[in-house]
């Protein structure tokens, strides 16, 4: 792909290839970055403490990240897989962030894939949804767990 981009004159050759089915023959829109994936850490006010009520902007970012990364297993209502709904274990911010980072059991670990701000936003959203009322997790909390 890189070579084709670097050598636009070869686009004609590539279309011949495509016609012969030797390479991609399907058109697909260019991939979009995951929702709310910029500046998430910057959304956390300096005065916000772990357990504080979560600002709406962070909740919204956390929900977008949850839908992209967590919904397939935990469901949009937090009831699938290992249920997050009304889950008292979520009171412990470090338990939750550690779980997201390492992915115990069947779960994927996200340490290499999501930065501290994004994980904090997801954890803050989960701790504030579906009957859970445990408040914010800060990017620094996630950094401490790494």
């Amino acid at each position: 792909m890189r070579i084709i981009q670097a050598l636009p004159l070869l686009a004609g050759a590539f279309s011949v290839l495509s016609g012969a089915g030797t390479a991609l023959s399907q058109d697909a829109p260019a991939p979009q970055p995951p929702a709310a994936d910029v500046g998430v850490a910057a959304m956390f006010p300096a005065e916000l403490a772990t357990g504080d009520p979560v600002p709406a902007e962070i909740l919204e970012a956390g929900e977008g990240l949850f839908r992209a990364n967590c919904r397939q297993c935990h469901g949009s209502r937090g009831t699938a897989g290992v249920p997050l709904k009304e889950n008292a274990k979520l009171e412990d911010a470090y338990y939750l962030t550690g779980t997201i980072l390492t992915g115990p059991g069947y779960m994927t670990g996200f340490a290499e894939h999501l930065d501290d701000g994004r994980i904090a936003a997801i954890a803050s959203f989960v701790r504030s949804s579906w009957g859970n009322d445990y408040g914010a997790v800060l990017p620094q909390d996630v950094a401490d767990m790494r």
Partner: peptide
């Protein structure tokens, strides 16, 4: 986006045979 290039294809694209391909010769 669409497309990929493996080593063989990359080498082939860089070769003189590409000219023939553009003219509608059989692909690979």
């Amino acid at each position: 986006s669409k497309g990929y290039v493996n080593g063989r294809l990359a080498a082939w694209l860089a070769s003189a045979s590409v000219a023939a391909m553009v003219l509608g010769q059989p692909a690979l």
